[in-house]
Structure formats: structure tokens, C-alpha cells
Amino acid sequence: MSIETTREHPERGDDPDDRPPGYVVGSGPDDVERELSHDEFDPIGTLGIILVYFVILAVMWAFMYFVEFLGRGITVVG
């Protein structure tokens, strides 16, 4: 899929005087090496990240509810 495998990325100058005219913040497409359509793209990394998040949420919820909350000395019973 790669249009090109290696590409020179000249460091953009950070000094205002060095910056080329038309300097852009967030010029993402500059660095795009290939185009991926919906069918060519499986967000497997996203799935992994989101499942890790799910586990963190579930474990921390259980800890907060059953240890921090229900484990407190004086609790409201009525």
C-alpha cells in the first residue's frame, strides 16, 4: 500500500524567521504515506486500547464500591 517507503522530513524551523511561508500547524497530510479506505482498515489497536480501558473501569469501580464505600465505618442503613 505504501506510496513511498522512505521520505525526507526536513526539520521545520521553530524560529519564526526560519519558517517557510505558509508554515502550518498540524499539516497532517504532509506525512501521509498511504491512503486507507474503510474496508482496508481494521482498528485493532483501538479495540485493544478500549478493552484495557474497560478492564480498568470495571476493577476500579469494584474497588471504589465494595472497599472504599461499603467498607466505611458509619454507613447509612435507612
Binding site: 498540524g26 497532517g28 506525512d31 504515506e33 486507507l36 482498515f41 482498528p43 489497536g45 485493544g48
Partner: peptide
């Protein structure tokens, strides 16, 4: 996150999580 992953893979990112490194972290807006 999937949209970001798409961007990272278009920028050449690979792997399960290595693509995170291919994101434009030098851009303050991003």
C-alpha cells in the same frame, strides 16, 4: 481513537500499539 489510529496507519504506523508513535505529537493542536 479509531480515527486517530487510521491517521497513524496512513502515516505509516504499524503493529498493535506501535502506531501510537506515528501520530503527529509535535503538533500542539493534535
Amino acid at each position: 481513537v479509531a480515527s486517530m489510529e487510521h491517521g497513524a496507519r496512513q502515516r505509516g504506523g504499524e503493529g498493535y500499539f506501535k502506531w501510537l508513535g506515528a501520530l503527529p505529537w509535535r503538533d500542539p493542536a493534535f
